[in-house]
Design a protein around this nucleic acid. Structure first.
Lengths: 208, 208
DNA sequence: TAGATTGTTAATCGATTAACAATC
DNA sequence: TAGATTGTTAATCGATTAACAATC
């Protein structure tokens, strides 16, 4: 009754998110697996796995292993993979429209892409997709009415902050910033993460 | 003479990589800036900035501030942004070819995209780009002869590990895995980072 | 029972922050 | 000199690992 609502750390969420998808690949949900095995499958130590599982509030029972389905359900609940989240993509240039296609063709997810935005109306007309597209001036309205909680930003750096502001006003809870600009959320409680190919390659090249 | 070749931590590289690009935006390189100001510009504490700068082996002088150009040069050297790195993209589906376009149109970088690979030869023929394209069976050979050190992997999950192996054999030092598959490097000294839209959105949605 | 395995505390490691001495 | 600012040590914080008690 203590740790149930504690905020989870990012590393833990990353590990458990991945474990969730690994567990989904088991054919037989009745299987039981040890923490050692789960560690091997996800590239972590058995101790970390046990600590994480404990951290999300799930309890197995000592001696017996973890039940695949029960554990998966518990992770899903705690990380709220069970309730569907609606997402949008703002900016449909080469990168944005590729992410749109990539996203809408990825199955098995609790994330649903429900809108795309671009400032150029004639660009909207040329894109072939089943996702609803809107001109950028409607961001606030559409985000609010469709209750979109996640936004992927793929616009030129110069306009990124403005887009972030409008997404915040519409009421998103999280923003994935794919532009090279540094942006901040005015509104309290909006999480922003940066997602940029060049930065990632830089990190790789500096490590190597 | 002690810390010069110590391996830098990923958070430090991320912060200094970003600081590097921020410093590049100063019009006048003769400007001097305080650690407090740099912290504000990058979203870190002044102490962290000073510690990082110290960590990469740069020394300012007490009381005067940091020289913009000198500091930028020092970061560039230590993170080896000065020596050009060659990169390739493997897998030219929607995501891969968008990354190819995105990458080749991003200027101001020490990273140079020099090759694209795909297993389908007729797909190679339809892509319009100034980057040289090759069939996938030539990965090892081309990576080796062009001395490519970074590979971006955007292939279907089922073939990801095989592609990683061939890149390693060719001699890359770093791999950015954009597929949903978990892959490992057989060879010692190859760094792999995962770069996946869906995982990032999951983290965001679990935080929010 | 004995071996295996989880739950959980203690120890370690690493990164960030606080504090302040050194010095321009 | 006095105020500002870096360099650097010490303190804090958080995450990972080690160890082992609890128990199937």
């Amino acid at each position: 009754m203590e740790h149930l609502n504690k905020k989870l750390s990012v590393p833990l969420i990353e590990r458990m998110g991945y474990l969730y998808s690994v567990l989904g690949q088991f054919r037989d949900g009745d299987t039981r697996v040890t923490s050692t095995e789960l560690g091997r499958l996800t590239g972590n130590s058995a101790t970390t796995i046990r600590k994480d599982i404990h951290g999300i509030g799930y309890n197995g029972s000592i001696g017996t292993r973890y039940s695949v389905t029960d554990l998966r359900t518990a992770i899903g609940k705690r990380l709220s993979f069970t309730e569907e989240k609606r997402a949008c993509i703002v900016g449909l240039g080469t990168l944005g429209s590729a992410l749109l296609t990539h996203f809408s063709t990825t199955p098995e997810t609790e994330l649903r892409l429900v809108a795309g935005f671009d400032s150029k109306v004639n660009r909207l007309e040329t894109i072939q997709t089943s996702i609803e597209l809107f001109p950028a001036y409607r961001i606030e309205e559409v985000v609010a009415t469709k209750r979109i909680s996640l936004a992927v930003i793929a616009v030129p750096p110069a306009v990124a902050q403005g887009v972030v502001d409008r997404c915040c006003n519409g009421g998103v809870a999280g923003i994935l910033n794919c532009s090279t600009a540094q942006v901040t959320a005015q509104r309290e409680g909006v999480t922003i993460r940066s997602f940029d190919l060049i930065s990632e390659l830089r990190i790789l090249s500096a490590r190597a």
